[in-house]
Design a protein around this nucleic acid. Sequence first.
DNA 1: GCCCATTTAAGTGTCGACAATATTGGCCTG
DNA 2: CAGGCCAATATTGTCGACACTTAAATGGGC
Lengths: 231, 231
Amino acid sequence: MGIMQNQPATNSTDSVSITLTDRLFDTLQRAIVEGEIPSGSKISEPELARQHSVSRGSLREAIGRLEARKLVERKPNLGARVVTLSYEQLIEIYQVREALEGMAARLAAQNMSEKEIEDLQVLLKEHGHEIEEQHGQAYFQKQGDLDFHYRIVQGSKNQQLIGLLCNDLYHLLRMYRFQFGMRSKRSQQAYDEHHYLLNAIVSRDPEMAELLMRQHIRSSRRNVERMLLEN
Amino acid sequence: MGIMQNQPATNSTDSVSITLTDRLFDTLQRAIVEGEIPSGSKISEPELARQHSVSRGSLREAIGRLEARKLVERKPNLGARVVTLSYEQLIEIYQVREALEGMAARLAAQNMSEKEIEDLQVLLKEHGHEIEEQHGQAYFQKQGDLDFHYRIVQGSKNQQLIGLLCNDLYHLLRMYRFQFGMRSKRSQQAYDEHHYLLNAIVSRDPEMAELLMRQHIRSSRRNVERMLLEN
DNA sequence: GCCCATTTAAGTGTCGACAATATTGGCCTG
DNA sequence: CAGGCCAATATTGTCGACACTTAAATGGGC
């Protein structure tokens, strides 16, 4: 299901021997991101523990990780609450993305393998077809955009960058998209921008790649600003 | 009946380190950053727990936070190891810093208050004096540089940015500085670059501020590259 | 009826113990 | 003597229980 499933670094050998806390963390993260556990609500440790049939200790470890990813906030002796989404915070996230993904694009233009670039071209072409078929309403804004960005980030080969974006920021962003119902309405433009960016990467032009990625994200941010001000 | 639980918090002047896990986390983080717990070494939960007179549960929560800050790596059923510092990873950190702090400088040029800017000018002037007095060997490279960057980041007013830089990256960087003995030898140049950057902020020129910050960090990275290649 | 102190309940922080998994050392076999 | 299988040990994962803090409820005085 999830395209950027959380598979911490060692994504090879054993996929079953995951610890209980890990599974619990994944479950809770998905529940929070998709709004199943409402934003801003308090988290009762005994209740959640019973509900998932785990010990409070394990649950607390999972909550700790959620806190590290800024999905919940915890105050001593007061408990944890799911983070409350605000307009300002969303803008902040876009600013951080602009900086980090801009750098990712720069590095990707230098470090992506020829095969990775080819695969990305194929992926982009598929996106184009889907937009034509569905007039850009369904798939693209939902998962395709993240897909494309995800590959660019991976292509940077910078583990620090990859960790920050794929582990910390993307889940927060996904949470906003779910709960604010952010359908983009500009799939065609986004597709074009992806195309230009990919061309810069094909040309191995880091400067241009960073520039285009930053413009792309800025443009996306402005779109969000407009959309939220309409409500 | 009562077991001696309460320990009147002797060692540090922490104002509000309420929970035990918090104190333990601070202690361990410092120990790791300063190399007291060697880089790459395995962390034995029973031993550390006994050594610090805490339960294994509390220790595990602290380790979990250290893992979130990428100071330790943990593999299921195998335990945690202090992260091993590598040349490549340090370069990666500098690339991330270039992106994030560049954005921070851009935002700081827009969002810093006049008073914050004045204070920063005072701080920079002090740095200048210290460089003259000590020929730039002691204080500046050690804390002054981080001090300056810290204020710029705060001045961005972007909480996401502040969190990423001051919580996640800052300690990793400090760890490298400690263990690689990174004395800069270019305090004068760094001071000049700080000066130019601050001028851009005074002029409220975001574009220029970001450009100068990125050049400053790139220059710092190249210096590190030279230094490490000499060994 | 309202306010404040005190008691009561609920929730979080911390601990020690048990179960599952990995590592060490010894023993047997070739 | 080497190498691999197996028991014994140590370490990690998980659990339930107790201590302390905060929130809620109760009751008495005005």
